[in-house]
């Protein structure tokens, strides 16, 4: 397989996952805004922080205003981190590899971009936002389903999966990082009811609330949520699950020594700690290390296969 084709497939995986994750994140944050008392609402700008987009946001001279932030995150094609930009780039990548993908996958990617674009306005206002974002999430899942259900599960598919799982691990770690910083209560005995709600929202933005309940059967607490999101190998958005998927793909490819070395380093760094027991600063450091590790995997993939 041509390196360029592998590269495109990898980015299709990443961009489709990214569009889905941003949509989930906005959706859950919208709900959270409604549930919390005014004084402790994290504010829309916290989503910009999670996505690491502050610089671009400030550069555009935008204000901390719901509509401007939504436009920036959803429909702004000049901002490479928006939902629409992700879908547009997924579409451009897909166009060049139409011959290795099932035809329906191309059609679905094309259709999702078109709807996301023509309906973008709906996402800017609270009234229709949920429906709009739901559409994005569903479209992305349809694409994932078509690819999984009808592509040859050979190396072409492994590259899509690599991209998807790296992006997913990245997004989970970002959400944990920013939300847990927001969530440190000023005094241990205050605000516990809201803390509970906020950790629930973290789980929900990763569609993990129900699964957490089934798996942990404990109240929603920082300690248990963190253990679950880092280490529950059975939960598809947990870090170790994603790392396991990435490892599975790498094992099926040739020339995988470098990539596997990176994967195993990341895996060990998570396995040896108890994230739930970490202080906020330690947790932040752990996530920093994890992000570097993920970037290292990405780099190893590039060097081994796309160069």
């Amino acid at each position: 397989m041509l390196s360029r084709v592998a590269n495109s497939l990898y980015w299709i995986g990443r961009y489709i996952e990214r569009a889905e994750d941003i949509a989930r994140l906005i959706s859950v944050s919208s709900h959270l805004q409604l549930d919390l008392p005014k004084g402790i609402r994290p504010g829309w700008i916290s989503i910009v922080h999670i996505l690491g987009d502050e610089e671009a946001f400030l550069k555009q001279g935008l204000e901390n205003d719901e509509r401007q932030i939504m436009k920036f995150l959803i429909g702004d094609l000049s901002h490479p981190g928006s939902i629409l930009s992700s879908l547009s780039m997924a579409r451009e990548s897909a166009r060049t590899v139409r011959d290795v993908m099932p035809r329906e996958a191309w059609e679905e990617i094309n259709a999702l971009y078109q709807t996301a674009k023509s309906d973008a306005q709906k996402g800017y206002w609270p009234k229709n936002r949920h429906v709009y974002l739901q559409q994005i999430v569903r479209g992305a899942q349809t694409i994932t389903g078509i690819l999984s259900g009808s592509m040859l599960h050979d190396e072409t598919y492994h590259f899509v999966r690599l991209g998807r799982n790296l992006e997913r691990a990245d997004m989970t770690s970002r959400i944990i990082d920013v939300r847990s910083a927001d969530l440190v209560p000023p005094a241990e005995h205050e605000l516990t009811p809201f803390e509970n709600i906020q950790w629930m929202s973290v789980l929900k933005s990763l569609t993990g609330y129900q699964m957490y309940r089934r798996s942990v059967q404990e109240p929603v607490r920082r300690r248990d949520v963190l253990e679950f999101l880092f280490k529950e190998r059975l939960f598809p958005r947990a870090i170790l699950h994603c790392i396991g998927e990435i490892e599975g793909c790498a094992l099926a490819l040739k020339k995988n020594t470098k990539v596997l070395a990176q994967i195993h380093a990341v895996e060990r760094s998570i396995e040896k700690v108890k994230p739930g027991a970490l202080e906020q600063a330690e947790l932040h450091h752990l996530i920093d290390q994890l992000q570097l590790g993920l970037a290292g995997i990405d780099e190893a993939i590039r060097e081994s296969y796309f160069a």
Binding site: L2, S3, R4, A6, E155, L253, K254, K255, S304, A307
Partner: peptide
């Protein structure tokens, strides 16, 4: 961009296996 000419004057395409 998929092709490169080597020092041996042969043309190669960049694939995931080299």
């Amino acid at each position: 961009s998929d092709l490169v000419v080597g020092d041996d004057d042969c043309v190669y395409m960049r694939t995931i296996d080299g």
